[in-house]
Simulated scan of single mutants.
Amino acid sequence: MSRLIRFATAPGQRPLWRVLLAVLLVAITWLALVPAPPQVVSTGWDKSNHALAFASLAFAGVWAWCPRPRQWGWLAVALLAYGGAIEIVQSMMPPRTGDALDLLADGCGIVLGLLAAWPVTAIARPR
């Protein structure tokens, strides 16, 4: 298992993580801004949708751009700003609405994604 983690998180794999991050950003932006998102792409609770989306972004962002934990603050700020921008745009797009609790769920998801990446960094560290 540790070999697989080291392979998946190796610097040579960063371009693949960047593609995944870009795909996630496009998909999440589309789902957030389409007037009526498809219900098949849902956990059943709006806040968990936000948390899952931003946990995925944070985890992919770690391996795409910020593999060192000391860089994660910038990643968290950038993702939270992205979530805030979505809420602002949604507030101007009926029938969508901006919601501060959505932004809180985004923040919780970012923390969860970084917490998931934490033990992987220990395994991925070259020996």
Rank of each mutant, 00 (worst) to 15 (best):
L104I: 15
V62S: 11
V26W: 02
V19Y: 00
R3M: 06
L31S: 12
V26E: 04
P15L: 07
G61V: 02
V40N: 03
S91N: 14
M93W: 13
L57A: 03
R127E: 13
W118S: 05
D102C: 09
G44L: 02
H50T: 04
Q90P: 00
V26Q: 08
G84W: 02
Y82S: 09
A36Y: 12
S91E: 13
L79G: 02
T97V: 12
L115M: 15
L103H: 00
L4N: 07
P119S: 06
G98L: 11
A60I: 10
E87T: 03
F54K: 01
W74I: 04
A22N: 06
H50G: 10
L103E: 05
L33T: 09
R127G: 12
Y82P: 10
L57C: 06
W65Y: 08
L21H: 13
L75G: 12
E87G: 07
L80Y: 08
A60Y: 03
S48R: 14
G107C: 10
N49D: 15
V77H: 03
A81Y: 04
A117D: 01
L114S: 03
A76P: 08
S2Y: 11
L75S: 00
P11V: 14
A55R: 01
G98E: 10
E87N: 09
A53I: 13
A76I: 14
W17V: 11
A36C: 01
W65F: 06
A100T: 01
D102T: 14
